[in-house]
Design a protein around this nucleic acid. Structure first.
Length: 768
DNA sequence: ATAGCAGTAGGCCCT
DNA sequence: CTACTGCTAT
């Protein structure tokens, strides 16, 4: 890659994009509709800054996901070469963590502080509730975690909380008058453990900038250009920090925020759409320039029209008109099924069909759902149909128990004060130090104001237990003595063996156990490659191979950041939230039912509904060419069968954009009627009574009573067979391994006669 | 005192 | 369907 900028790098931009790129001085707001080349503008803007003489390390680019940051850096490096590595581009959390490690001494933290994830946070809050002898059915960890999180995001310290009448009144109302005490204890304990939770990474940085003007000055000096991506998803605290960094309101630097109010989908964690709505006002005295990117380069006109119509139902938004010149394109398909199983099958089926008809690769296709729990059924059918897929989100690699246990050991080695890590591993694998003994340690730690690890050394224990505890302490301290001189892998390897974790996993021969061993091994492999290769994720971190650096690198990773080496041609399954910023030729938005999408949690407020609608807007605007919406009449949720109306959002899709008949053999075009029904329901008109039901099994071609399936082994090429739904057919080909034989069968009665059927699952009767 | 089992309550979206 | 509590057997 040449280290100079191609002269024509601005040529590929439209007029507004180019203006947004070249207006480098003063505050800039870029309102960027979906598919409008937002990332292009951001990356070219940064490249342009460097071209204009800015040093890479003077540029701070804040994103929400590591993936977005990485992508941005990659694209910038295509223009400016390896200098891109020195740009401060990353997530709010990771860049702030980096600053905090350098400046930790100012706020009484060690520079190797631990980052507590959600599980650690919940566990600590639960612990505190127990210690305060509060009723845990009243004081619920999750509720309190949210309470504390939003307090931090509103810059309310425990002291302020205690004096805030409104908050106290709310807590009383909720029958939890002592939340302020839990909050105070929680902050205390985090500090004692040398740990910060996700909110602390923001909150503590704000405090640092607020209370240490010399530090704030240093960073203001350093970052001459500040850019914020996805600005609509920032919370009050993030915006406050950004303002501090640009020294608002005295002499705002060159700040550029990019976002789309219509894609704000994180209100539930404190993001406020108000930030982007206010930004223009906040910086109006400094000649703010606003650019609206309204041309959508991603999607067909049908999809854009649908998106516009849907978002038009929301109450307030920045006025803009998103348009596309890609032609009308395919109409939108709506699939209706009886239940979630049917939905899974139908979607997988439709994917096969689309792949054949439109020559789509797996990687062109995504299935998007509201909740991660919905993925299972689609996985099942994709597997059956032999379609490669990958599920993002849900349980990430680093959240798996076997991985977390090992990481907890490593955390403890780096930071023995880490209370959550200690409690996680002290008796894991089982070494006879149970709740009672740990309880004694906790009591002692509380009494003497020492850390758990310290307490574990001195506490009085039964002889056998004492011996075990000493062994444990010795193991940690031995590893700790080498932590600065030995590479991460060596320490991890030793701990894996000495702790007994490796033996534990090796000894487990169950299916799940083997999976756990595999994950455990691949964690170790990951540490090894961290040591051997230059897999430094955080480019400005010194390329050292210590355990501390390794832990820093993985602390803020999510499922998105774990690269899978295997094939990349896979169908993507993920939540709508996770899909933001991505695009696919064909998108399936599934589970479009009232109480699911929109979620029941959001349905009781107008703000909640608006956010759900924005979420739906995000979902449909991921699609380039094909958009398929699906819903089921009933589905299993939490083990219970529930029945839901089709989502109101379906009724907001313009009728002329929907294809009225689908090509499925199964449901014969009732979808459109059903949507009309919902449309009527929403507008208050009584829907026509309509017979419901049997679409999926509309016409069984064979009487089940006379059907006796033959053993799969007897199905060979050339035989004539009977299938319950498809009727008579002839096997034209058999392939796949012994355990996964797949028959290609020609059913001459069907509109699409070729079917590929997994013999493992299918019930076929051989005909003479 | 600890470990394994059965039963029950509470569940989303992300760093 | 999964994560916790409460019980009983070691």
């Amino acid at each position: 890659m040449p280290d100079q900028i191609p002269a024509d790098y601005l040529d590929g931009l439209n007029d507004i994009q180019r203006a947004a790129v070249t207006t480098t001085e003063g505050p800039v707001l870029v309102v960027a509709g979906p598919g409008s080349g937002k990332t292009r503008v951001l990356t070219f803007r940064i490249a342009h800054l460097i071209e204009k003489g800015a040093a890479p390390w003077e540029i701070l680019a804040l994103t929400f996901t590591n993936k977005a940051a990485r992508e941005m850096k990659e694209r910038i490096s295509k223009v400016v070469g390896k200098r891109a590595g020195n740009i401060w581009a990353g997530t709010f959390h990771s860049l702030f963590a980096r600053i905090l490690r350098v400046e930790a001494k100012h706020i009484g933290y060690p520079s190797n502080f631990t980052i507590y994830d959600t599980d650690d946070t919940k566990s600590l809050i639960g612990q505190i509730i127990r210690e305060l002898s509060l009723d845990k059915t009243v004081y619920q960890t999750n509720a309190i975690k949210n309470r504390i999180s939003s307090a931090k995001s509103s810059l309310i310290t425990p002291k302020l909380y205690e004096r805030n009448e409104e908050l106290l009144a709310q807590d009383k109302q909720a029958n939890m008058p002592l939340v302020y005490k839990i909050y105070a204890a929680y902050v205390n304990r985090c500090k004692k453990a040398g740990a910060m939770d996700f909110d602390d990474l923001l909150f503590r940085l704000y405090e640092l900038l607020q209370n240490h003007p010399e530090v704030a000055g240093k960073y203001r000096q350093k970052f001459k250009y500040v850019l914020v991506d996805e600005f609509q998803d920032t919370n009050t605290l993030q915006y406050a920090i950004v303002k501090k960094l640009v020294q608002y309101p005295d002499s705002p630097r060159n700040i550029c925020v990019v976002g789309d109010d219509a894609q704000s989908i994180y209100a539930f964690r404190g993001a406020t759409i108000q930030n982007i709505l206010d930004f223009e006002q906040d910086f109006s005295q400094f000649d703010i320039q606003t650019f609206k990117l309204e041309q959508n380069y991603r999607s067909t006109e049908n999809i854009v029209a649908t998106a516009n119509a849907v978002i038009g139902h929301n109450r307030r938004q920045i006025q803009k008109k998103i348009w596309s010149d890609k032609g009308l394109g395919e109409k939108i398909t709506v699939l209706r099924e009886m239940d979630d199983t049917g939905e899974g099958r139908r979607v997988a089926d439709t994917i096969l069909e689309q792949k054949n008809r439109h020559h789509l690769a797996n990687e062109d296709i995504a299935i998007l759902y509201r909740t991660n729990a919905q993925s299972r059924i689609f996985e099942e059918y994709l597997r059956r149909f032999n379609i490669a897929y990958r599920v993002y989100g849900g349980m990430s690699f680093y959240q798996r128990k076997e991985v977390k246990d090992m990481v907890a050991y490593l955390r403890l080695v780096v930071n023995p004060n880490d209370e959550e890590a200690f409690r996680r591993v002290i008796n894991n694998p089982k070494r006879g130090i149970g709740n009672t003994s740990v309880g004694k340690m906790i009591t002692l730690a509380g009494q003497q104001q020492i850390t758990l690890f310290e307490a574990s050394k001195h506490v009085a224990l039964a002889k056998r237990t004492r011996h075990q505890a000493d062994g444990f302490i010795h193991m940690i301290e031995q590893a700790r003595a080498k932590v600065d001189t030995t590479d991460a892998y060596e320490i991890a390897d030793t701990i894996a063996k000495k702790s007994g974790l490796l033996d534990l996993h090796r000894g487990d021969t169950s299916i799940e156990g083997m999976g756990r061993l595999e994950n455990f091994q691949s964690l170790l492999d990951g540490i090894k490659s961290f040591v051997e290769e230059d897999t430094v994720i955080d480019t400005e971190t010194l390329p050292d191979k210590t355990l501390a650096t390794y832990l820093q690198n993985i602390a803020l990773l999510t499922d998105f950041d774990t690269k899978n080496a295997e094939s990349t041609d896979v169908v993507t399954l993920m939540s709508v939230h996770a899909a933001k910023g991505l695009e696919y030729k064909s998108v399936f938005v599934v589970g479009l039912e009232e109480k699911l999408f929109p979620s029941w949690m959001s349905m009781d407020t107008l703000d909640g509904m608006d956010e759900e609608r924005r979420l739906f807007y995000v979902a449909i605007t991921r699609a380039e060419q094909f958009l398929t919406l699906s819903y089921a009449n009933t589905r299993y949720r939490y083990g219970k069968m529930v029945m839901n109306e089709p989502s109101r959002f379906l009724a907001e899709v313009p009728a002329e954009a929907i294809v009225s008949t689908t090509h499925s053999r199964r449901s014969q075009g009732h979808e459109y009627d059903r949507v009309q029904e919902q449309r009527a329901r929403v507008s208050g008109v009584t829907p026509p009574v309509r017979s419901r039901g049997t679409a999926r099994f509309a016409k069984p071609k064979v009487d089940p009573a006379n059907f006796t399936p033959s053993p799969a082994a007897e199905i060979v090429e050339g035989v004539r067979i009977l299938h319950l739904k498809f009727g008579e057919g002839r096997v034209t080909k058999i392939d796949g391994g012994a355990a996964n034989r797949i028959a290609t069968i020609h059913f001459s009665d069907l509109p699409q006669p070729e079917k590929r059927i997994m013999l493992k699952f299918a019930k076929l009767q051989i005909l003479p």
